Amino acid sequence: MRTRTPKDRWDLNICKHDRVLEIGSGHNPLYRSNVIVDKYIDNNTHRCGDIKIFPHQHFVHADGEHLPFKNKEFDYVICNQVLEHVDNPQLFIQEICRVGKRGYIETPSLIGEFLFPKESHQWVILDINDKLVLYKKELMPGNYKNNYGELFLNYLPYQSLPYKLLKLTEGDLMINRYEWKDEINIIVNPQDDYYLPFFTQKWDRNMVEKLFPPRHVYHELKAICDAISHIIKIKLLESLHKNRKLQTLEEHLQPHNTLSQRNSRSTHENNKMQ
């Protein structure tokens, strides 16, 4: 079930001693994650760059739809910008709920997918009634090929304070943020008269207010203050943690290989002396 809507992936309810799994982190893993899983090692079709990993993290080459872990092995599972890529979303969700007790899912929203679509994205996703509703992108009307990600992902988030405030005060406009416990409610390719029009028809005022309920002026001001506070917090954390260095996957695995070779040579030499 859904527990809350975090501001972003730096606002998660992860406890100090939680064991954290991150699936499909690509070039931008969360430092708090203990184990990193990725399906594609030598192919960047599904990400913006080569796999990166922090020195303290453990890497596992695996498919998110078939995870090589025990039931409830992890306290928290992070899936940031991954669900929209998968072949079988039901199986993927089933697996992360099997290996994890709690977690966080983030995906582009329908508007986000329109603004910065990726050819590798298979699903358009909306968060409706605490359910993640997925609709096959190839069935969507409209132009989902022009990609303005350079503006909305790589420029405005770093240059425009009003844009940052928009993302935090109306976060669901472009991103779905879903923190969960025990299970995740999803609907795939809905055909009913309630969910289907969100993907195939013009949005009327009732549909808009369903996704973005009206707020009192007090809640508007509070949302702005909370957003400014969060931006300041992230800037402080970035300055404190600027020495954290990411490694390529090859660099990350090299020390382990070197240590293994040294241990092997040491054992061989000891055997010769004996």
Score class of each variant (00 low, 15 high):
residue 79 C to P: 02
residue 94 Q to W: 07
residue 47 R to F: 04
residue 153 L to S: 15
residue 20 V to N: 03
residue 137 K to F: 11
residue 240 L to Y: 08
residue 21 L to C: 07
residue 67 L to K: 04
residue 180 W to L: 01
residue 74 F to K: 02
residue 70 K to L: 12
residue 241 H to Y: 11
residue 6 P to G: 10
residue 112 G to I: 05
residue 79 C to I: 05
residue 193 D to E: 12
residue 261 Q to C: 01
residue 71 N to D: 15
residue 262 R to E: 04
residue 146 N to C: 12
residue 34 N to V: 04
residue 59 F to V: 05
residue 196 L to G: 00
residue 133 V to F: 09
residue 118 K to T: 05
residue 121 H to S: 06
residue 251 E to A: 11
residue 172 D to E: 10
residue 98 R to I: 05
residue 40 Y to H: 14
residue 123 W to K: 08
residue 243 N to D: 14
residue 167 K to W: 03
residue 150 E to M: 13
residue 143 N to Y: 14
residue 73 E to P: 01
residue 61 H to S: 12
residue 131 K to D: 06
residue 18 D to W: 12
residue 233 K to D: 11
residue 15 C to P: 00
residue 32 R to H: 07
residue 17 H to A: 12
residue 162 P to G: 09
residue 217 V to N: 10
residue 144 Y to F: 15
residue 84 E to H: 03
residue 179 E to P: 03
residue 183 E to V: 00
residue 126 L to R: 13
residue 126 L to K: 09
residue 273 M to N: 05
residue 211 L to A: 04
residue 124 V to G: 11
residue 174 M to W: 01
residue 33 S to P: 06
residue 265 R to C: 01
residue 133 V to K: 06
residue 143 N to C: 13
residue 97 C to H: 04
residue 34 N to Q: 09
residue 240 L to M: 09
residue 81 Q to C: 03
residue 66 H to V: 03
residue 147 N to L: 10
residue 87 D to Y: 07
residue 218 Y to F: 14
residue 191 Q to Y: 00
residue 166 L to F: 15
residue 159 Q to N: 15
residue 116 F to R: 13
residue 203 W to H: 13
residue 142 G to D: 11
residue 83 L to S: 04
residue 196 L to C: 00
residue 274 Q to V: 00
residue 246 L to G: 01
residue 19 R to L: 15
residue 39 K to E: 12
residue 195 Y to W: 00
residue 58 H to P: 00
residue 246 L to F: 02
residue 123 W to M: 08
residue 26 G to V: 04
residue 103 G to A: 08
residue 83 L to E: 02
residue 115 L to N: 09
residue 9 R to N: 11
residue 148 Y to R: 12
residue 125 I to Y: 03
residue 227 A to W: 06
residue 233 K to I: 00
residue 28 N to A: 14
residue 119 E to S: 13
residue 213 P to Q: 08
residue 100 G to F: 07
residue 256 H to P: 00
residue 125 I to A: 05
residue 3 T to H: 06
residue 189 N to I: 00
residue 152 F to Q: 10
residue 51 I to M: 08
residue 239 S to N: 06
residue 262 R to Q: 07
residue 192 D to E: 02
residue 104 Y to D: 03
residue 138 E to T: 15
residue 175 I to C: 02
residue 145 K to G: 07
residue 161 L to N: 11
residue 169 T to E: 05
residue 99 V to S: 04
residue 268 H to L: 04
residue 185 N to R: 02
residue 57 Q to G: 07
residue 252 H to S: 05
residue 221 L to M: 14
residue 162 P to Q: 10
residue 24 G to E: 05
residue 139 L to G: 09
residue 242 K to N: 08
residue 113 E to C: 12
residue 27 H to K: 13
residue 148 Y to D: 14
residue 140 M to P: 13
residue 187 I to Q: 01
residue 36 I to M: 13
residue 186 I to V: 10
